[in-house]
Amino acid sequence: SSRTRFTDYQLRVLQDFFDTNAYPKDDEIEQLSTVLNLPTRVIVVWFQNARQKARK
Rank of each mutant, 00 (worst) to 15 (best):
S1Y: 06
S2T: 14
S2N: 14
S2Q: 15
S2E: 15
S2H: 09
R3C: 15
R3I: 15
R5C: 15
R5H: 15
R5T: 15
F6K: 02
F6Q: 02
F6M: 14
F6S: 02
T7C: 02
T7R: 02
T7E: 14
T7D: 10
T7S: 12
D8H: 14
D8K: 02
Y9V: 11
Y9E: 14
Y9H: 12
Y9F: 15
Y9A: 15
Q10S: 04
Q10T: 07
L11T: 10
L11R: 05
L11V: 11
L11W: 04
L11A: 09
R12G: 08
R12C: 01
R12S: 06
V13M: 15
V13N: 10
V13Y: 14
V13K: 13
V13T: 12
V13W: 03
L14C: 07
L14S: 01
L14N: 00
Q15S: 12
Q15D: 10
Q15M: 13
Q15I: 08
Q15P: 01
D16M: 04
D16L: 02
D16T: 05
D16I: 02
D16N: 11
D16K: 09
F17A: 12
F17V: 05
F18S: 06
F18N: 03
F18Q: 04
F18I: 08
F18E: 02
F18V: 08
D19E: 06
D19A: 14
T20G: 11
T20N: 10
T20I: 04
T20M: 09
T20F: 02
T20K: 14
T20S: 11
T20W: 08
N21Q: 02
N21K: 06
A22I: 10
A22T: 08
Y23A: 09
Y23S: 13
Y23D: 15
Y23T: 09
P24D: 01
K25M: 04
K25W: 03
K25N: 08
K25Q: 06
D26L: 05
D26K: 14
D26F: 09
D26I: 03
D27C: 11
E28V: 04
E28R: 05
E28K: 12
E28T: 10
E28C: 07
I29C: 11
I29K: 02
E30M: 15
E30A: 14
E30D: 14
E30S: 10
E30P: 03
E30Q: 15
E30L: 10
Q31W: 07
Q31P: 04
Q31T: 05
L32P: 01
L32H: 00
L32M: 11
L32N: 01
L32Y: 09
L32C: 02
L32S: 00
S33P: 01
S33L: 00
T34F: 14
V35Y: 02
V35M: 13
V35E: 08
V35F: 06
L36S: 10
L36W: 01
L36I: 08
N37S: 09
N37M: 06
L38N: 00
L38D: 01
L38C: 12
L38M: 10
P39I: 00
P39M: 01
P39Q: 09
P39H: 14
T40P: 05
T40I: 15
R41K: 13
R41F: 07
R41Q: 12
R41N: 14
R41W: 04
V42S: 10
V42H: 13
I43G: 00
I43D: 00
I43T: 13
I43H: 00
I43R: 00
V44I: 13
V44A: 10
V44T: 09
V44G: 10
V44P: 04
V44C: 13
V45W: 12
V45R: 04
V45Q: 06
V45K: 05
V45D: 15
W46G: 02
W46K: 00
F47D: 03
F47C: 03
F47N: 01
F47V: 05
F47S: 02
Q48S: 07
Q48K: 03
Q48A: 12
N49S: 12
N49A: 03
N49T: 14
N49G: 12
N49R: 04
N49M: 07
A50F: 10
A50C: 13
A50W: 04
A50S: 13
A50N: 11
A50D: 02
A50H: 03
R51A: 06
R51T: 02
R51E: 08
R51Q: 05
R51L: 05
Q52F: 02
Q52S: 05
Q52M: 04
Q52T: 12
K53M: 14
K53P: 10
K53L: 14
K53R: 08
A54Q: 12
A54C: 14
A54T: 09
R55D: 11
R55T: 12
R55S: 10
K56N: 05
K56L: 04
K56W: 04
